[in-house]
Design a protein around this nucleic acid. Sequence first.
DNA 1: CCGTCTAGTTGAACACGTTCAGATAGAACG
DNA 2: CGTTCTATCTGAACGTGTTCAACTAGACGG
Lengths: 226, 226
Amino acid sequence: MKPATPDTPETGRGEQTKRLIVDTAVRLFRDQGYDKTTMRGIAQAAGVSVGNAYYYFPSKDHLVQQFYATVQEDAAAAVAEALAEPGPFDERLRVALTGMLETMTPYHAFAGKFIKTAVEPGSPLSPFSAESEPARERSIAVLRQVVEGATTKIDAELKPDLPELLWLGQMGITLYWVHDTSPDQAKTRLLIERAVPLIDRLVTLARMPGLKSVTREALKMYRLLK
Amino acid sequence: MKPATPDTPETGRGEQTKRLIVDTAVRLFRDQGYDKTTMRGIAQAAGVSVGNAYYYFPSKDHLVQQFYATVQEDAAAAVAEALAEPGPFDERLRVALTGMLETMTPYHAFAGKFIKTAVEPGSPLSPFSAESEPARERSIAVLRQVVEGATTKIDAELKPDLPELLWLGQMGITLYWVHDTSPDQAKTRLLIERAVPLIDRLVTLARMPGLKSVTREALKMYRLLK
DNA sequence: CCGTCTAGTTGAACACGTTCAGATAGAACG
DNA sequence: CGTTCTATCTGAACGTGTTCAACTAGACGG
């Protein structure tokens, strides 16, 4: 079935073409944005035919996803380093969120087009899709690192679900960011600056007697409906 | 400038065509869904040319918006009646949310396509856009009715912003609903059933001494960033 | 060496949303 | 009546993402 190239398992003739197309597409997306990058343009720049691109990728969106994955990976790598040493929860959360924002900033214009297909149910680009699982897990892993390395006391019942909940919050921030037309997305920065202390306080308050039952109820709902 | 028809101010030759196109489009969207309804199809069914449709509507999306507006209006009208008499907050909120859900249920498949363009920044279909203001205000008005007719005690500082906040929550529920693949969207119903008591408790708790400062901080953030 | 098979490759063709240079028609005016 | 003006209307043409029947080339078996 497979040619016998044991070390680099995916280096058939086709794999090379596939990588060539991805690289070209990512470069063009980066340089020209979504709309100006056409399938014909990608094919021509990569020196292949349009049909050949479709032999490897079912749609333009699937190429966009590759682009998205590289950005996501960059963001996660940039932040993971800064979270090596333990510290207070709020500080770590801010580092993670601002780090992500910083990495994505160059692609703000692009993100507007990206999100369009990302929210469509069943789209491979959806953050909840099976195809996005690696990128999603990568992001949640960063937030898990935020939680686990936090010196702040966190309710034991909340703790295991907190990374995923924070990830949902991050999705919300991203949604806000995409629609943020303020210069240099200043409002999103402000949102993070203000939301982080609030989240920190809520996490702290969640352990308190008066709120413990609400926390438990909310967590039950989340687990039931996710 | 305008022909002298005082009673029905918008009844020029063009207005009739415009309405004809809208009605046809809404009907086709309802019957065939988004993808199968083409601009050529709409034009043909309405007995006009494609270009003529574009004379009145800048894009297919603008026609979709009209469809959305009618559904929205139906939902608001259905609920407003049930909210005539005052009652407890949680009950009123559930009536509003389930009423909206019930009206939208027939269009669940359609909504998946709809949301795709609705989340795109700058799209006229965006729930935050200027073009959507009438529909948005209509929805918020219902939630204002929920708040104002509530016999439950609501924090005075929170009260003026609560309808808008509830509307944001409703947008979140809608987002969940669109992605809900459970039979008959049972999970969304469950979400409402569970979330309403939680919201009710949070609204009640917001007045309490321990949480008053968090509430105030959160409200400040909301007003700053909306 | 020949025949067969198949992964890889091609570009014309399709349907779509959208645009635009021009046609039409009814009113307003002299 | 003829002229002019403007709101309305037309459909061919454009560029797009996507499909598909046909072609190529290299491997494999006899």
